[in-house]
Design a protein around this nucleic acid. Structure first.
Lengths: 222, 222
DNA sequence: TATTCTCTTTCACCTAGTGAAATCACTATG
DNA sequence: CATAGTGATTTCACTAGGTGAAAGAGAATA
């Protein structure tokens, strides 16, 4: 085993990354998949075929790879059972209330390595609103969610750095798990034109309150 | 490489199965995970740690493994983009209509190796109804969905074999993809007390019609 | 303190995975 | 209808990478 990979397993890691590439692309050819991981096609093909063999991937008549039923099963299971489901279920009512109170879209985000993933949402009902970020990731560095998830900066700051997309402003607050650490973040995202100074107080308070009551729910589930 | 694994990759397969075990269990200890795959704990631990390192798994303070943010991200992405999303999105209105017309729960299922996975549903509104099978699998052999997905038997037969659960009756019809093959099945599941001879005709017709119009939608999407 | 449990680390062995190159299967292009 | 070009597939000799028995470290129970 060489230097940096003392605790990993190359082929497994490659297979997983290939799976990631396919899921992210939706549908991808052998060549493109191999290229995206900088692998020889023969190696990529072996892995992709293995994944297909186990049902994690499907392959259409043109040789394109896409997600298969096994992965779908795992995806569905992981989202309706397990700790993640518990978290999103617990968060749902708070997100709904928050979206209603602020008139903007509310999101729940967790940390993934050096990024934040949005895993649940309650959408604003307004015509112009923030939508479709569920499943999406943003960097931890330079974002309000990132700062909150890493424990930096005060909670619920209203920011408009435009770091990810222009004209998007955010108010974020940390969700504290039973063990006292930050396990997620609740954020309200909307157009910076609406989330300006005049609305700061109400939005900030609402987000903080939502995050706090969710944290409370998680501490004493019953 | 020994005999039977000429096109596979052992460590990758093991990692994937470990991931499967964790997702299925929701939360599992090293020992149990290793036992479920019949692996030495040292080998299982190495894989699990690698998975954790990449964010596919999380580990709580008691050493229990559960799904991590990376997997969650992939799960969410695969369900809202890609071919699977296309299929379930296209199926949604048909399932809704079917559930309303029959008063029973309607499901969409696809094949996963030698099993069928339910990937979408529209629930019956009745008090006694069939619920919660999304993400669940049943064997292809001896079930109505199975027969339909493999192309055996006439479509839309109403069966009450009780092969999976007693008192559950099903009416199933095949969904035909653009390439002319069976790519999914639509089924209506309900208590056998309600899905009896007297209701056979209406339910059968409704299921067939739903499957056919979904197949039609898939052929000429626009 | 001894005993038993589960998790973790180590390391010598050798099989399982690798990837360059050859081959095959298409399909644009002259 | 050759001909070159593109991308998928197969082969195979090499050895890096993965394996798992065994020993070590805690933690829990008696």
């Amino acid at each position: 085993m060489t230097s940096s990979t003392l605790h990993k397993s190359r082929s497994a890691e490659r297979a997983l990354h290939l799976l990631d590439a396919v899921v992210t692309a939706g549908s991808i050819s052998l060549g493109d998949a191999a290229k995206s991981l900088d692998l020889p096609t023969s190696t990529a093909l072996r892995h992709l075929k293995a994944l297909e063999h186990d049902g994690y991937l499907d392959r259409d008549t043109h040789g394109m790879f896409s997600v298969g039923p096994t992965f779908l099963r795992l995806a569905l299971t992981s989202l309706r059972e397990g700790p993640a489901a518990h978290l999103t279920t617990a968060a749902r009512p708070h997100l709904d209330r928050l979206a209603e109170a602020t008139g903007e879209s509310a999101y729940l985000a967790v940390r993934e390595r050096s990024r934040a993933v949005y895993i649940a949402t309650a959408e604003s009902t307004r015509a112009i609103r923030h939508v479709g970020w569920v499943g999406r990731t943003v960097p931890l560095k330079g974002t309000a969610v990132g700062a909150t998830l890493t424990g930096d900066g005060e909670p619920a700051v209203l920011r408009n750095t435009g770091s990810v997309e222009p004209d998007v402003a955010a108010a974020v607050a940390p969700v504290i798990g039973p063990d006292g650490t930050v396990i997620a973040a609740i954020s309200v995202l909307g157009p910076s034109s609406r989330l300006d100074d005049s609305s700061t107080d109400t939005v900030t308070t609402a987000v903080l309150a939502a995050a706090e009551s969710l944290s409370h729910d998680l501490r004493g589930p019953k």
